[in-house]
Design a protein around this nucleic acid. Structure first.
Lengths: 301, 301
DNA sequence: CCACGTCGATCAGTATTGCTTATCCGCAGT
DNA sequence: ACTGCGGATAAGCAATACTGATCGACGTGG
């Protein structure tokens, strides 16, 4: 089970075609065919049904593992390189918009720079998926991701290979809607009041709809409008213009003109931001972790 | 980063010698030397200091990942084989002694066999480390492990590669000691009363001492007697004979002659047993999971 | 202080592997 | 039936991955 073989296997499964995978990987179609044949011979099963190309049940099993293995391989390489290449005074962070924008990260970074003046910081803001993937692959030392969940549950995170998570902050949720929306003057709104409402699906800048669905066990939460960016102001503009509503952490939507904010009642959910990291002993990242998780300034509303 | 190279790398790191690793792996010393050279060239660093052989800092980083990657590779292979080889009516379970002995597992298994009469069951009882490793490597479909932790914390588990955990039961803890121990007539005992007591370190059949240390943040919990088996009765005999004391879940030690049982006071800890599994959709293992986690008969004392 | 033994590095030689190009074969659409 | 598409197969060649032999450095005992 050479990683190269696994790599072409997932490529083929994703492309749904041997030749397309060959193109993507810079091989010839013949090589790809031989790779798959080798894998199937090694494991003693057929992994892909041909024409059309689709994984067999054992192939599905392998796919589950293959991605994680390749990711971890990348993480290992990145970790080793970091152990030598980088001077220890470097800090590479990725964060989802709602995790980065709260101000806590900025404060914690000033704490770090005060303690360790020479620190070089690189901050990337991107979608939740990209952040976890980047941290898992070792591209970033630290990740900050946000999401909604029941108060006792942790975030539902995909493929954290070797990663650890620690809670950083949690906050109440509100429904953000246009000021002339019928619900705008309510004291509170329950989530099932919003089934069949006009949702904006903004997976990176608001509560992700699948999380809300999971919490309510309804699948009536559907969106006709999709916002794919990572800029919160653009989403707020859409909401103010009446294109739909979204669920946000309270601090993200208050006192924005044209936006009304209504606390979310049942079910009880919180906006939670968690820290994602691999190994970080001795690095400057450890300082940031303590600054972020220091209970003194943890927000507990 | 060929897995073969990683494999010999961890072998060399464990053996502390190129030639010994070569013996273990069935290679020549020359081959091992070339493997390490190839890895070091690929990663651009020296990974091992020679004479004596010890990992450099980047080597340590790599070691952290290498074991997990190889484990996961095994798990992938085992998973694929299970998807074809085994008839779906097979169930292979591993459990730590205190997780298997409680009777809940036996009850759940009768439920499964009643629902699905033809099920073939294989149960292995072994230490916690062996159980998690075996499940991670795909050797078992399901693992049941126990441990102690604060009521809100999950168990501190090592290297779960792709594994998911679900809580199965929790139970109060007691101190088990000989009936003529000075503390035997106490109504309750706090853990710091037991610092510098005569502990029996029985990592697989009682609360593991590192867990207790972690909970109390004292390191005064030291044992002069080590019991390495997985048979609870042998440990109880040692305790009854006055060789020392141990912390056990309440049900494991009550009404055993020669043993006094005193509830554990502060800090508040529970004995928790958790289920460990990889992918199990459609398999007979899924039935057992629901039988074990059915809230109807969950023990909540 | 020197000789020797141990252990890793290196070299040369060889069998195997892993690509490529070229060709073949089964299936779908017309 | 023809043809185009997509995967399988064959042959050849370059790079790889071992083995066995040798070298060189270090540590040890006389």
């Amino acid at each position: 089970m050479d990683p190269h073989l696994l790599r072409t296997f997932v490529a083929v499964a994703e492309c749904g075609s041997f030749s397309a995978a060959a193109d993507r990987l810079g091989y010839t179609q013949s090589a790809v065919s031989q790779h798959i044949a080798a894998l199937e011979h090694d494991l003693g099963t057929t992994l892909l049904r041909r024409r059309p190309v689709a994984p067999t049940p054992p192939g599905e099993r392998l796919l589950d593992h293959a991605g994680a293995i390749l990711l971890r391989l990348d993480a290992a390489r990145a970790d080793v390189h970091r152990a030598i290449g980088e001077p220890p005074g470097t800090l590479t962070i990725a964060a989802s918009p709602l995790a980065a924008g709260g101000g806590r990260l900025a404060e914690a970074l000033t704490a770090v720079r005060r303690n360790s003046p020479g620190t070089a910081v690189s901050l990337t803001v991107d979608g939740r998926e990209a952040v976890t993937h980047g941290v898992a692959a070792g591209e970033f030392q630290l990740g900050l991701i946000d999401g909604v969940a029941a108060p006792t549950d942790p975030l539902r995170l995909s493929d954290l290979g070797s990663l650890r998570t620690t809670a950083v902050a949690h906050e109440d949720l509100v429904v953000a809607l246009s000021t002339n929306h019928p619900l705008a003057r309510r004291r509170r709104v329950d989530l099932h009041d919003l089934v069949d409402a006009r949702w904006i699906d903004a997976p990176d800048t608001a509560a992700a709809l699948p999380d809300l669905r999971a919490a309510t066990e309804t699948d009536g939460i559907r969106a006709a409008f999709n916002y794919a960016g990572t800029d919160l102001r653009a989403l707020l503009a859409l909401i103010a213009a009446g294109h739909g509503l979204a669920v946000l952490p309270a601090s993200a939507a208050t006192s924005v003109s044209g936006i009304a904010v209504v606390p979310l009642g049942a079910p009880r959910l919180v906006h939670r931001t968690e820290l994602l990291h691999g190994h970080l002993d001795g690095s400057r990242a450890a300082e940031l972790v303590t600054a972020l998780t220091a209970p003194a300034n943890r927000r507990t509303d």
